[in-house]
């Protein structure tokens, strides 16, 4: 997310055009073409990362539907088991892993842990984040499996 909001050129530029009644230089319009993200493979990956939130949210809505079915009691309960759901979940899983990988990889830039007069190296923070992902996957996955026994 490093577009016009990071540069402050979007709304601010437009609102800064007037200076006390004096005609100011025209503000920089900062209008990117809508297809800017298709011009470089890195931009496409960036956009893919940003939209990982969409399939993940849709999958969670699907989970909500399942919880809603459980409200009707055992007679009306049908878990998601179709092949279409599995394929959809595989696609969502790819996006979820992509979100995890890209976000946790940034943790070394975002998190600052003081260590005396220095800070913990970014590489150690990234390694710790991915370690935490493995632990969380084992614990959460294990509980979901154990809960089904």
């Amino acid at each position: 997310m490093l577009g016009r909001r990071e540069t402050g050129l979007g709304e601010d530029a437009a609102s800064g055009a007037s200076t006390g009644g004096r005609e100011a230089a025209p503000a920089h319009p900062n209008r990117l073409p809508t297809d800017w993200w298709r011009r470089n493979p890195r931009y496409v990956l960036y956009m893919l990362r940003e939209f990982t939130a969409v399939p993940i949210a849709i999958w969670m809505v699907w989970f909500l539907v399942e919880i809603g079915r459980a409200r009707g009691g055992s007679a009306g309960y049908r878990p998601h088991q179709s092949l279409a759901f599995v394929i959809f979940s595989v696609v969502c899983l790819v996006f979820a892993v992509w979100h995890s990988f890209t976000f946790l990889r940034l943790s070394g830039l975002i998190v600052r842990i003081p260590l005396g007069e220095r800070t913990v190296p970014a590489s150690a923070i990234v390694a710790g984040s991915f370690g935490l992902l493995i632990v969380a996957t084992v614990v959460v996955g294990g509980l979901l499996i154990l809960g089904g026994r």
Binding site: P79, V86, C92, A96, S100, F103, L104, G141, L144
Partner: peptide, 21 residues
């Protein structure tokens, strides 16, 4: 984002793929 990065893959993997299969 940190929370979802840590726990969502496990939910989708178990509830969406391994469980239904």
């Amino acid at each position: 984002a940190v929370l979802t990065a840590l726990v969502i893959p496990a939910h989708i993997l178990v509830q969406g793929v391994l469980g239904p299969l």
